[in-house]
């Protein structure tokens, strides 16, 4: 059977619908699609500013070949991917723990939640500046604490591993509440009967958590992971304030590298190539997350 032919009325409605959405679509095309396409196009060019505007000197794959061959890009990629994996994993684990705790709370959940959300509500540049004071090598509180137990406290932001760890701590501090809130929303939707059924079957607390709570949480966890991966992969403000990508290039993320290439070196083509490839990587990462999410929803449905 073929689909029923649209009636005249339906067609007219569709036409009016398109008419009304056109302005919005035009705006989206202008502010979202055009810049993306423009930057993809630029990434295949060698351009220079001239008196008359941007001048394309040649169309080339050179930006990509140079980028792929560059140790700086590879280091930035490794840092960004590693940093994303570690911080997101820790944030999810901590977020689940906090959410479970909040779920059990009878009284005061509201204001504890509000308190927890303070780090999340701070602008990252501001909170990064606060962490910068804490980590300061001369009068930082954290350095002082290390000094109590160590002869020679590490120069936190001047040594690769402590710098990366310090940055991850600042990130986890800020975003764990966000993850906790999302997961809490999933937790409260688990019907009480499931807990009761588990109890009747003689499951202990751990068994209940692993076999009842966690599977039910998979969809919200996937959403949280998706959000966090998107954000963590584009990390810019923390390294920009805390280390400027240092020591050496230990904390130079892809976004910082792209910024420096574009705005310090004025290398438009190369900057666009970095931005485009980072965007492509994020899209692939998110598609993988979504695939996982879908599979798990199916599993959850079948279970």
């Amino acid at each position: 059977m073929t689909a029923p032919r649209p009636t005249g009325l339906a067609r007219r409605r569709a036409r009016i619908g398109w008419l009304y959405t056109t302005p919005a679509l035009v705006v989206i095309a202008l502010v979202t699609i055009f810049p993306i396409l423009y930057s993809v196009v630029l990434s295949f060019s060698k351009v220079r500013f001239t008196f008359g505007g941007l001048h394309v000197e040649e169309w080339t794959l050179g930006n990509y070949t140079t980028m792929l061959a560059s140790p700086a890009w590879l280091e930035a990629l490794l840092f960004t991917v590693g940093y994303t994996l570690v911080t997101v994993a820790v944030e999810i684990a901590l977020g689940i723990a906090v959410a479970v705790l909040l779920d059990r709370l009878e009284a005061g959940r509201g204001w504890i939640l509000a308190l927890l959300l303070i780090p999340w509500s701070l602008i990252t540049v501001v909170s990064a500046q606060l962490w910068d004071f804490l980590y300061d090598a001369t009068f930082g509180a954290v350095t002082w604490l290390f000094g109590l137990v160590m002869d020679q406290p590490p120069v936190i932001l001047g040594t690769p591993v402590p710098a990366i760890t310090g940055m991850a701590v600042a990130d986890i501090w800020k975003t764990t509440p966000f993850v906790a809130v999302i997961i809490l929303a999933g937790l409260v939707r688990i019907p009480q009967e499931r807990y009761e059924a588990a109890e009747v079957d003689g499951a202990g607390a751990w068994t209940t958590f692993w076999n009842v709570v966690l599977p039910a949480l998979r969809p919200v966890v996937s959403v949280a992971v998706l959000f966090r991966v998107l954000q963590a992969f584009g990390i810019f403000d923390l390294p920009f304030v805390l280390t400027q990508g240092g020591p050496g290039t230990a904390t130079q993320s892809l976004a910082v590298l792209g910024y420096k290439t574009l705005f310090q070196n004025l290398d438009i083509g190369m900057g666009a190539a970095i931005a485009t490839s980072t965007g492509a990587l994020v899209i692939v990462g998110c598609l993988l997350c979504l695939r996982m999410f879908r599979n798990q929803v199916d599993e959850g449905g079948a279970a």
């Binding site: 120069v155 001047g158 040594t159 690769p160 240092g246 020591p247 050496g248 290039t249 420096k260 310090q264 070196n265």
Partner: peptide, 22 residues
């Protein structure tokens, strides 16, 4: 015109020497 990269090519490895990484 590549001075920003020239400067970076100097300060990055020197900073690593200072921290003992190189």
């Amino acid at each position: 015109p590549e001075y920003p990269m020239v400067s970076k090519a100097v300060f990055t490895p020197v900073n690593e020497v200072l921290s003992g990484g190189m």
